[in-house]
Write a protein that binds this DNA or RNA. Structure first.
Lengths: 336, 336
DNA sequence: AAACAATAGTTAAGCGTTTAACTATATTAA
DNA sequence: TTAATATAGTTAAACGCTTAACTATTGTTT
């Protein structure tokens, strides 16, 4: 691979001049520029990133950190969409994207990750941070790696989906439809900070409307657990007319279980989800759910990171959610 | 961040000695080792990757290249699973994973990608290569970047899922059940090399059994198109008793469309898919499909790449597929 | 015409490693 | 006892780039 020295030789100038031309630092003539560019062209010169990184500190790498806890990339479709947003923004700026999925335990993230942070390879980080037991972010502060948090962990620069508002809006929708016997399928709330918010929004909304949530059970995000929890709910509380799940996958399971029992959705029971993964619009019946605008979440987080790299201190962002009313929700039969 | 020089100073030795100790190059005493390690410990020294990369050429970065054509990461669940396999293998070896999603046109991959390949940043590449119009691999050959192809593009080191065998096995299953009026939902075959194989397997199998495929229509991988093509098929060929889709998402759409028309699956019509994405086992009815073992595909590809980095030349691999018989397939009603 | 400023380019130091070549000491063989 | 060898450590060059400090040239101002 061609180096600066070769380009300089061919163009008949010094390597400093070549470097100046390439980085557009003032003080060279158009003629020099031409000579240099021609040499670059002819040799197919591409700067060596490692050398550039060492010399200037700019690596053009940012890392996406998706901690690996119970779930993550493999199973959560949301990650993909956040990733797409981040990728879009990075590739536009010529940055490369490093994917890090540290194993997270109560003692903190794994060795590999810690070394990576301290290796000087990363210009910045976008990290998912919603796990209460432990966080990937403290170490970034310690070693001054710019980082943006997507989530409710403690960190100064963050973007959060308005989970409280989102939870509030589904519940509001359900209560407005006339439902009074409502079940919630969630996950153990010590697992996930944003789910805590979602849940709080739901129960606050119900409380304010003078409605008491009939029952609340814990699944584990999976379709299967959604079905199982739906079964529990329906057996213990046959009076239920609506069930809200804190993610779409569990809502899929819930609908399946309802169908399995010969119930019609939404005629016999309303089911709502949360996340608005693409499949949600396409199942039968199409699912009423809350969109987090995941790609925008990733994209904005990345914009914030680039702002930090420019020396700015971006304000925290609360991304509004959007209630997607589809056909899985309807007034309770008793009203019609 | 601490550098070698600081460690050397603290341990009272030269930087070369520190480097030797850390890389376990012979000729130092246990005592020296202790002194060095203690200094490393106390200063929290972590080698600067950029410097190491420049000096030794080892960057500890491998890139996963998922070209962005029509579809990709955002929508294809398979990618995720391949990615998981790659990630597992990389993190085990302390390698970092760079995610590259070049825009691919007939003129080849985009500028960013080409620069990345030539930047010296990458020790190797695992690339999805199934698009006939263009490939991300020729440039890796040109610049001697070790690369493993997952797919049917022309490349010497590759791993392929046995699409032909997989296609053959679903068709065999359907014919064995007694179906004689069979429809296929595929995609325009100039889009995807592995789909061509899948299809060939299916038609060869049917041909050998003396069964003629009744109809074949083109969707676009999406659930929606699956439903639409199912509608076409059922209207044009009411005699059909089985429909095979070349991916699971279209099969979901097909099942939905069948349900929408009041048909029962598999009682009135058999529907099979391909890919075995996790959802497939959980929909109603659970889908008969073909598993590609995507994570293993990614993992083996990565093992092959590491073998190349060790100077070996791995043999091409054909990964066997597995027919997953579930409840969406049954003998045609005429037989029962 | 002298003094100064702006422009164009060069030289050389430095980024933090790895590693080949070297020196110094201890050990073994003859 | 000497030479050869193995061991332990050091010195310094190299990787390819950026950039501060410098020199040389040209243009402008007084």
């Amino acid at each position: 691979m061609a180096t600066l020295t070769e380009v300089a030789k061919r163009a008949g100038v010094s390597i400093a001049t070549v470097s100046k031309v390439l980085s557009n630092t003032p003080y060279f003539t158009e003629e020099t520029r031409q000579k240099v560019m021609q040499a670059v062209e002819e040799l197919g010169y591409v700067p060596n990133l490692a050398a550039r990184a060492l010399s200037s500190g700019k690596t053009f790498i940012i890392a996406v950190v998706f901690p690996y806890v119970y779930d993550t990339i493999s199973s959560d479709p949301l990650m993909q969409h956040i990733l797409v947003g981040i990728e879009t923004e990075c590739s536009e700026r010529g940055y490369n994207l490093l994917l890090s999925t540290p194993r997270l335990t109560a003692e903190g993230p794994d060795e590999n990750y810690q070394r990576l942070i301290r290796s000087g390879y990363l210009e910045g980080i976008v990290a998912l941070d919603n796990v209460p037991i432990s966080s990937v972010l403290p170490i970034t502060r310690q070693f001054n790696v710019p980082a943006v948090s997507i989530g409710y962990g403690e960190h100064d620069v963050y973007i959060r989906s308005d989970d409280y508002g989102g939870g509030h809006s589904v519940m509001e929708h359900i209560i407005a439809l006339g439902h009074r016997y409502i079940g919630i399928v969630t996950v153990p709330c010590e697992l996930h900070l944003s789910v805590q918010q979602r849940l709080q929004g739901m129960t606050d909304c119900a409380g304010n409307a003078g409605v008491e949530v009939t029952a609340q059970v814990d699944g584990d995000f999976s379709i299967r657990s959604g079905a199982k929890m739906m079964a529990h709910l329906l057996e213990a509380h046959p009076e239920l007319t609506a069930v809200v799940c804190i993610n779409d996958r569990m809502a899929f399971g819930a609908i399946q279980e309802a169908h399995r029992r010969g119930m019609r959705v939404p005629d016999d029971i309303t089911v709502c989800g949360y996340d608005d993964i693409p499949l949600s619009a396409l199942i039968a019946p199409p699912l009423t759910t809350v969109s987090q605008h995941a790609p925008e979440l990733g994209q904005t987080a990345t914009e914030m990171l680039f702002a930090m790299l420019d020396g700015k201190i971006p304000d925290p962002v609360l991304m509004p959610t959007e209630l997607m009313v589809r056909q899985s929700s309807a007034p309770p039969a008793s009203i019609i």
